[in-house]
Simulated assay, not measured.
Amino acid sequence: MATTTAAPTSPRTSAAPPPSRWRNLLGKADVKLSPYLYIAPFFILFAIVGLFPLIYTAFVSVHEWHLIGGQGDFIGLQNYVDVLQQPRFYTALRNTFSIFLLSSVPQVVAAIVIAAVLDANLRAKTFWRMGVLLPYVVAPVAVGLIFSRLFADQSGLINELLGYVGVDPVRWHSDALASHVAIASMVNFRWTGYNTLIFLAAMQAVPRDLYEAAVLDGASRLRQFFSVTVPLLRPTIIFVVITSTIGGLQIFDEPRMYDQYGLGGADRQWMTVTMYLYELGWGAQKSFGRAAAVAWILFLIIVVIGLINFSITRRIASAAPDRPKTKRGGHR
């Protein structure tokens, strides 16, 4: 029986067909556009809930806009002029900066110290690390109500404790500085634990061989903290300072709930800029135009202070000494 052998196939017919031009273009577009499509949802959401309200607020601020009557005539920068001529605006601005300084500076220092303690070898580390975050979980309204009772002028627990050491009762709701200290205590109570966890995460990222080298050099725990930990925490400190600045200048919940009226005191001794904004928009004037002007003035103040903080902290970070580099031969 004769056997038939198959004819050899030509290389042209056995090879896979070359990819089309459309597939090449599609592959290039996928490589170039995919990263932008992945991050597009964030920018779309930011444009809807962040950028559009900001632009719309600027539009409202240059119009005579009433809460009930709605949009009025275009008046340019008259709302800004009216706001800057009001003494109450400068009182609110002074109160805002006072509360911000009394809260942010001790808060950052306390957060770094607590994070250093939690970074040490403690028993039940998870319990203590979760415990510092509990005040942040508490609602701001509840914190305001509790602290307003603690700092009551007549029957508050703080005045009772001060009486045991011979200190006269402090008028926490009457004196401006005392009310600022009380409100700053609320802010520190809520946000110190949150910033502590941020610093703790940064401390755990520090290479442990640096501490081992410091121990071999005879450095104490305190010396290790100031010579190793703090210099390597400078980028994190920059981040916390900037975010604390933004949040501190927008404070509203704590001073609003400090008393039952929510007006910032009889003489507006603890009224902040955001409370003044709320009073203009929803108070007796019901002027959305002036309230929007206050919002934009506060936005510009936050931007300026944020840039100043960033430039100062960046100079401090750039002035830090670099880490010693090891050469190939193992000698420094």
Rank of each mutant, 00 (worst) to 15 (best):
R256N: 11
R234I: 08
H180Y: 09
T196S: 10
R268C: 06
V181F: 15
I237C: 07
S185H: 11
V228E: 02
L200W: 02
R256S: 10
A219R: 10
I246D: 06
T243W: 06
W191C: 12
P207F: 01
V215E: 06
V215F: 04
R208S: 08
F252Y: 13
V206K: 08
T229N: 01
N195M: 08
R190E: 12
E212I: 12
T236E: 01
A219K: 13
D209Q: 14
R268A: 11
A202G: 04
A182F: 12
D253T: 08
D217E: 14
I198K: 04
V206F: 09
V187N: 14
R221P: 15
V206R: 08
F239W: 03
G218W: 03
P207N: 06
T243S: 12
V240A: 02
D217W: 02
A214S: 14
G265R: 02
W270N: 06
E254D: 12
W191Q: 08
R223V: 01
S179L: 15
R221G: 07
L197I: 15
W191K: 05
E212S: 13
M186R: 08
G262K: 04
M186E: 07
I251C: 03
P231M: 01
S220H: 07
I237D: 00
T243Q: 12
W191A: 12
G218T: 03
V187S: 13
Y258G: 03
T245W: 01
Q260S: 13
L233F: 02
F225P: 07
R256K: 15
I251T: 08
R256A: 09
P207S: 05
L222Q: 00
T192H: 10
G262L: 01
H180N: 14
W191V: 08
Q224P: 09
Y258E: 01
A266M: 09
G193L: 05
Y194L: 14
F199K: 01
L177W: 15
H180T: 13
A184V: 13
F199A: 04
N188Y: 11
N195T: 06
Y261R: 12
Q250N: 10
P231E: 00
A202S: 10
V228G: 07
Q269S: 15
A184D: 06
T236L: 11
T243A: 10
G265M: 10
R221E: 03
V273C: 09
I238H: 01
Y211S: 07
L197G: 05
V230M: 04
R223Q: 12
Q224Y: 01
T272I: 04
A182G: 14
G248H: 03
G264I: 00
T245G: 11
F189L: 15
G264E: 01
L263W: 04
Q269M: 10
Q250F: 06
F225K: 02
R268I: 07
A182K: 12
V215R: 08
A205T: 09
D209G: 11
L210W: 03
F199N: 04
M257N: 13
L222E: 02
M186G: 12
I251D: 00
L249H: 02
Y211F: 15
T229R: 00
R268D: 00
A213W: 00
P235S: 03
P255T: 02
R208I: 00
L263E: 04
M271T: 08
G218N: 07
G218Q: 05
P231V: 00
S244W: 02
S185C: 15
T192G: 11
Y261E: 08
A182I: 13
S179C: 14
V215A: 04
I183T: 12
V273R: 03
A201V: 11
Q204K: 14
I246W: 10
L232P: 03
P255S: 03
